[in-house]
Amino acid sequence: MRDTSFAPGRILIYLIVSLIAAAYLVPIIVVVLNSLRTSEEIAQTSMIGWPQRWAWSNYGIAWADFCVAQTCAGIRPYMLNSALVTIPATIISTLLGAVAGYAVSLWRFPGDRWIYGIVTLGLFLPQQMRLLPWTIVLRDVGLINTLSGLVMIHTIQGLSFTTLFCRNYYVAIPQELIRAARVDGAGFYRIFWRIVLPLSPPILIVTVIWQFTHIWNEFLYGVTFTTGQQQPVTAALIALTAAVADIPQYGVQSAAVMIAALPTLLVYVFGGRYFVRGLTAGAVK
């Protein structure tokens, strides 16, 4: 489509793009390499360097032995916490969002526009406006400092996104399909189960990936509503980097950072297409 004949120009283009790409890759390369270097080596040279001696044990230590705030069990418990929050919250919010999106896109009921409009405001309302009320709600239902509390928060807050994603996908389903099913005798649930849900895998994947990455990477609620052994891994990472300020253990810390980032990076590697679709879908509200 564009001019392709200008050879020196094209070399320049490749050069620039490759340089920027290299710059983008520096942080992850540095962390990966550091996670395989001993702390002494890092202290002597710098964060940036090729391992002279491969320190594979960093990962074992980071996973199970490392001390974070008086407990020495590595980041394993925190990874488990994150998983126990992220997985249920992702599944529940996606399912509820799919049903809600289905209802607002393919059915008319009194107040549908209004309620949907308010739900989408959740995309914009900053977390800071909800921190205090959540504190009170969690205290009143006895879920403060529990993983269930975080699951509840992420599920309810996630509904804004999941409903929006699914609704925007379902509005493209022809109304005639729903009409045909109604004439055939199918009701609200059967139409969802037999007709809408089988069409949904693409948007469900987008939604699950979006929710998973967001909840896994979330920090503010984790650090506010949980302490100690109940914290998700993002909160634990901060504690970890702060705790070792006196005796730096950058090799092990790098390994911990890699482990903490791995789930979402894997999701990105294997579901990149859907991840990007989620990003752009969230942008074009």
Binding site: L177, R179, A180, L199
Partner: peptide
Amino acid sequence: FQSYALYPS
């Protein structure tokens, strides 16, 4: 129906 409205799945 005009679009036939066949259930795609």
